[in-house]
């Protein structure tokens, strides 16, 4: 009952635009979108005029909705196109969006094998407490995490340097002997950089997942700081000693997060850092979140 002769199957030609858009919305890979734009001139027009690359990018990373304009640094400023007609300008903007969002999405989601690992050469751990708990409070967010913050902390223990493997996996480190951590703060120092970022030639290091294994002495013992001179007061609660002695160090390997949650967190982390990098400009290195998993063993936390 086929009454059409050699049916037209170039669906972008024969179906309505909203149907085509719906069909193309099932493309979820930026490479597929880019290749679709080379199929023919009409496909090229469709992909760019409808901003498929941008749609895909915003769907994956809704945080990008706040971007109102993009500029390709090597192609000069927006002003250079001012003299053109409205249509030509609009098209130029669409083409630029296509270029930039396709590249951005590719950078954010590129396949695993090509992913660089931003591990450090060595890792070192320090434990200690803030000089003034009142000043720090419970909010660590305002601390300059990229710097040691030595002026705000008293570090009572510094571990040896542990070499890190340049691999994207969980890496356990065991302290040579048990260490008492007074005050409950652990600092992880990533020493030496290996991975140079293709994009800007700068070095990046990062850590994605940390778990510290130890044994709490609380509630049998507690430490209070006597301000302002930073002296410590040790409190002993005899009635709680039994429970503190019974609690054993947790030695089981941490369960890996559900894959999906992990991927999501990774993507969001990646994006957040990328955006921070965008805000700060190329001269302020940002951390590109990757899975370098650390496990530290042997600390005693008080």
């Amino acid at each position: 009952m086929d009454h059409k002769v050699e049916t037209q199957v170039d669906f972008l030609q024969c179906l309505e635009t909203d149907v085509c858009l719906y069909i193309m919305s099932f493309l979820d890979d930026t490479g597929d979108v880019v290749r679709a734009s080379v199929v023919s001139r009409s496909w090229h027009r469709f992909v760019i005029a409808n901003g498929l690359a941008k749609r895909l990018c915003l769907k994956a990373f809704p945080q990008l909705y706040n971007i109102t304009d993009v500029v390709i640094a090597s192609e000069g400023t927006v002003n250079s196109i001012e003299e053109k007609t409205n249509n030509a300008m609009e098209w130029e903007i669409l083409e630029r969006d296509h270029k930039v969002y396709a590249a951005l999405l590719q950078a954010l989601t590129r396949s695993k094998p090509g992913k660089p690992i931003y591990s450090a050469k060595f890792v070192r751990f320090r434990m200690g407490h803030p000089k003034s708990p009142r000043e720090i409070g419970s909010d660590l967010h305002h601390l300059p995490l990229q710097r040691p913050a030595d002026d705000k902390f008293v570090w009572t223990y510094t571990s040896p340097e542990f070499p890190m493997v340049q691999e994207n996996r969980l890496q356990p480190f065991e302290l040579p002997k048990p260490v008492l951590c007074v005050g409950g703060y652990l600092q992880i120092e990533l020493l030496g950089r290996v991975q140079r970022q293709e994009m800007d030639g700068l070095f990046y290091i990062c850590v994605c997942y940390v778990r510290v294994l130890g044994r709490p002495l609380f509630p049998a013992f507690e430490m209070d700081m006597v301000e302002p001179d930073g002296k410590l007061l040790l409190k002993y609660y005899p009635e709680n000693l039994t429970s503190a002695l019974q609690s054993s160090s947790s030695t089981e390997v941490p369960r890996l997060r559900h894959l999906e949650a992990e991927m999501l967190a990774e993507r969001l982390g990646l994006l957040e850092d990328l955006l921070r990098g965008i805000q700060q400009g190329p001269n302020n290195p940002f951390i590109w979140d990757e899975d370098d998993d650390d496990e530290i063993n042997g600390g005693l936390v008080l």
Binding site: D10, V39, S40
Partner: peptide, 8 residues
């Protein structure tokens, strides 16, 4: 698949 001739 979609019987399209490239005009590029």
């Amino acid at each position: 698949t979609f019987r399209i001739e490239s005009d590029f």
